[in-house]
Amino acid sequence: MKKLVEILARSLVDYPDKVEVNQVEGEKSIILELRVDEDDMGKVIGKQGKIAKAMRTVVKAAAAKEGKRVVLEIIK
């Protein structure tokens, strides 16, 4: 799951080396904390959060396959 977020985020930003994903795993749910360079925030959030929403949709689909709930948080 962490890998997926890294791939998606790195393909969108100007500074892929600054992409960091921290995965906190619970029993039924996973929390993914995404950090990117300050200048890249817009690139992973998008207008009205459109990009963030698309990433969440894809990540949720992947998690559903493993029967887990997933929360993707973008951290400043």
């Binding site: 990433m55 894809v58 689909a61 992947a62």
Partner: peptide, 16 residues
């Protein structure tokens, strides 16, 4: 799973 509800997942991946 790739299609999702009414094509939601497919649309999201297409956008990305």
């Amino acid at each position: 799973i790739l299609i999702g509800r009414r094509g939601d997942t497919l649309d999201a991946l297409q956008y990305l």
